[in-house]
Design a protein around this nucleic acid. Structure first.
Lengths: 153, 153
DNA sequence: TGTAATTTGACCATCTTTGACTAATGGTTT
DNA sequence: AAACCATTAGTCAAAGATGGTCAAATTACA
C-alpha cells in the first residue's frame, strides 16, 4: 500500500464498515491524509464507482458533505441483464471487465477463484489474437459468462 | 556470477526466500544494481518464466510494483503442468476442453460452477472470430486458466 | 569468428499527486 | 430581498512516478 490513494480507499471502506453508506468531508479527509482535496475526488472517481457498487451524492457550501452508498442489487438477474444489455456494448476492455468482476464479487455473485478463472480466460494474454478484435471477442464472451451466472446461481 | 543479470536473479530469489511471492520495485532494483531499469525486465523475462515456475503481475504509476509468485511444486501442479505442456498443444477444440474440464472436476480441482464459467468464456459462441484461430486462442487462454489454478490457493 | 546472451537507452503507457480555477450553498449584512 | 462572504465540493490539466517495449550496441562463449 505504497500510495496514498489506496490508503484513503481503505480508510473509507473501513469507516463504512457494515453500513450501507458513509458521510465524509472532503477537506477534513484531505487534511487527515495531508493531500490535495482533489485527490479525494480522484479516489472517489477511480475506486468508488458504480461498477464497483457505489453511488455518491454531495453538497457544497457550509455543512457540505460527500455521501457514499453501497448499491444493493436485490434483483440479481435484472442487474445482470442490465450489465449485459447496457453497460457492456460491442466491446469490453480488460480493465473494464476487471471492474465488473470486482463488483460481482462484492455482490456475492462470484467468489475470488471464479473471478480469477474468468479473468485468466479473457486476459489480454489469453486473447492474443493477431487482430484488434480482442475487445469485441471479450465483450461477447463475457456476456456469456454473465448469462451463465443467471442460470447457475 | 560474471554478469549482472545473474546477480539480479540471485538477489530476487534470495529476497523471496521461503515466501511464495515477492514484491519488487523496478527502479529501485535497477538503481541498486546500477543498471538500466529495462534490464530488470530482461531478467524477469528470461529467468522468472512460467517454465521455471514463476508468474508475474505488475502495476505502473505511483506505488507501482512487480509481484513475482512462485508456482508451488506439488503433485497437483505437476499434473496441471503436464496438461499445459503436453496434452494441450497449440490448439484446443471446444470438445477437448470440455473433456479436460470434466476431468478437473472429477479430480476435485474445480467445481461445476467454476467449470461452467470457463466454458462460457471459451465456448464456440464466445470465441466468435473469423476462421480457424479459435482453437489457437482457446489453447492459449485455457493454459492461462490452468496456470491460475496452480497459484490460486 | 559467428551466434547467442546481455546491456543500454530512447520512447511509450499507465497511475498518482498537485494546484489553479470554478461552482454551489448557507449564513450575514445592508 | 439583495449583496456579500465564508465554506465546501468539482473539474481539469500538468507534473511526477512507475513499469513496458523494442532495437541497437556490446560482450561472452562455443
Amino acid at each position: 500500500m505504497a500510495n496514498i490513494s489506496e490508503s484513503i480507499e481503505q480508510f473509507i471502506i473501513a469507516t463504512m464498515g457494515d453500513n450501507d453508506f458513509v458521510d465524509i468531508s472532503r477537506n477534513s479527509l484531505a487534511e487527515y491524509f495531508s493531500c490535495a482535496p482533489s485527490q479525494i475526488n480522484y479516489v472517489l472517481d477511480t475506486r468508488f464507482t458504480v461498477d464497483r457498487g457505489f453511488v455518491k451524492e454531495s453538497r457544497r457550501g457550509g455543512g457540505g458533505f460527500i455521501k457514499i452508498s453501497r448499491i444493493k442489487s436485490s434483483d440479481t438477474n435484472a442487474y445482470l441483464n442490465g450489465l449485459v444489455l447496457e453497460s457492456i456494448g460491442d466491446e469490453l476492455s480488460y480493465k473494464r471487465m476487471i471492474q465488473i468482476l470486482d463488483k460481482l464479487i462484492a455482490d456475492g455473485l462470484m467468489n475470488k477463484k471464479e473471478s480469477e478463472l474468468v479473468e485468466a480466460s479473457l486476459s489480454e494474454d489469453s486473447l492474443s489474437m493477431p487482430f484488434t478484435i480482442k475487445d469485441k471477442v471479450r465483450a461477447k464472451a463475457f456476456k456469456n459468462v454473465l448469462l451463465k451466472l443467471m442460470i447457475t446461481k
